[in-house]
Simulated assay, not measured.
Amino acid sequence: MTQRTALFPRFGALLAGLVVVATSIPGAGHAAEPPPGSVPVPQLDASQPITPAQHVYPDAALAHTQVTEAFKTALRTHRKVLLDFGGNWCPDCLKLAGVFDVPSVAQWLDAEFVVVPVNVERINQNLDIAKRYGVTIHEVPTVLIFTANGKLLNADGANTLGNARAMSAQSVIDLLASWNRRS
């Protein structure tokens, strides 16, 4: 009995030393993104200007691959998937992207979602992705939020952000947060 208790303190000290060494290696022990729920929903100052983003939506040909990879990443990281259907010509889409670019919002989005901007061009490309989940895109931006397993959580409000320019940045965040609380 005495021999066992004498070994454990040495083992504990050795283990503690290994943990210190391992966590001092850059990137070791740290997730690439914060775990879901660890970043609070941002509260934006109403006077904070939102600068519309420029050229947010990648080549439309990339969408199917990016969506597939997003669901794989979401399963691995225990996050949801946020698909942002829009186009670089769309002022509401660029306003929404500007909200997403606010640092506290970007941090929250990264913690909660795998975000994929899906280029629909002039609402004539990649519409089949939304259709797969029973959503017809009539206007952009259209935002769909899914569980990592592909369950659509906001079918009832998918087109709500179609007039994002008329919404405050905080109301956009609050809407996304309400959809995110669904399961």
Rank of each mutant, 00 (worst) to 15 (best):
L175K: 09
A177W: 10
A130M: 12
V118A: 10
P40S: 01
M167P: 01
L15K: 08
Q125N: 11
L161M: 12
A22K: 04
P9W: 11
P26C: 05
I129N: 08
L7H: 12
V19D: 07
L176A: 05
V81L: 02
Q107I: 11
K151Q: 14
C90H: 12
W108A: 06
G157A: 10
T136P: 05
F100T: 09
L152N: 00
L7Q: 15
N88A: 03
H138Y: 15
A70I: 14
L82I: 04
V102M: 11
L18D: 13
Q107V: 09
P36S: 12
I25E: 03
A111I: 04
P141W: 06
A177M: 13
Q125M: 10
T68D: 07
A60Y: 12
L75K: 15
S24V: 06
V114I: 02
N119M: 12
I129R: 08
F71A: 07
P9H: 06
Q3N: 14
W179L: 05
R4V: 15
G134N: 05
G98Q: 02
M167Y: 01
Q125I: 02
A97Q: 04
E33R: 13
P26Y: 02
L152R: 00
S168D: 14
T23I: 11
T142S: 11
G87F: 00
N159H: 15
P91S: 05
L152C: 03
T160N: 09
P42L: 02
A74S: 11
V118M: 09
A61I: 06
F146K: 03
M167K: 06
T2E: 08
F71L: 07
N88R: 01
L96W: 07
A31T: 10
L7K: 11
K95P: 02
K95G: 02
T65L: 14
Q107F: 06
L152E: 01
Q107A: 15
A13N: 05
E33P: 08
T51R: 15
T160G: 03
V41S: 11
W179K: 00
E112V: 07
A97N: 01
F146P: 02
L94P: 05
H64W: 08
C90R: 13
L161N: 12
V120D: 01
N119H: 14
V56C: 00
I173C: 07
G134D: 05
L153T: 10
S171G: 01
T2Y: 06
F113I: 03
F113H: 03
A32I: 13
K131A: 04
